[in-house]
Amino acid sequence: MEESKTDARAKLAEHAYRIRRNALLMGEVQGQGYIGQALDIADVLAVSYFGAMNYRPEDPEWEERDRFLLSNGHYAIALYAALIEAGIIPQAELETYGSDDSRLPMSGMASYTPGMEMSGGSLGQGLTIAVGRGLGLKRKGSKAFVYTLFSDGELDEGAIWEGLMSAAHWKLDNLIAIVDVNNQQADGPSSQIMAFEPLTEKMEAFGWFTQRIDGNDLDAVIAAFDAARNHPGEQPRMIIADTRMGCGVPFLEAREKNHFIRVDAHEWQLALEALEAGRQA
């Protein structure tokens, strides 16, 4: 029993590594991309796609699948990395990232990409769709979950708080939201742009079963997703994930924080090597 648990953890760590690697390879294709964010959210995506969600890679629209709504569309590079790892997008398509007529545009859009359930980019919309998906699944008697990922910058948008209130009102126990608190948004550190703490207390006051974790501690992420799925209460579930931009590539993590982390042309290979070194360690 204990044995299989460590096996499972090792597998998830490997998936997280490969998601980070896919993201770096895509960043290298374009010489840019939201790589700091992709590296910070890789552990959450690994656990979502390999420890929590039900889906069929060969049939991304399988009716009984769990839905994953990426609200922060600029994190598309991260989700593509996970969808490739999950076998929903062929590995070979990684080369086309962000290019003309690719299925992997730089901002996530449902009409372009298998497994992309919504068009993000206009931030603050994902949770509202998730509420509707949750209601719609319940209407159909479906047992599927709706996962939605949004970012700390999105907390500034009024629509997020409309969604938070509504999900609790409708007792959406099939809704699991993850907010990536990397303390960064376009103009600077999120906590300075618009003070959002105390976040746990706010979410609880809004009626959500709330956990706050280190989003780059794989064990904590695994435990939080288990608890979110198995929580008995008739209420929506929130995972507040504090993350570190650039996580997994020490020299990027140490770099001055920015919405766009600067990566020089020769550094993509160095980043891949640093990631690889961390995997062996």
């Binding site: 374009q30 290019s99 003309d100 690719s102």
Partner: peptide, 8 residues
């Protein structure tokens, strides 16, 4: 060849 980008 340099790929063409859909950057913001």
């Amino acid at each position: 060849p340099k790929l063409k980008t859909s950057a913001m």
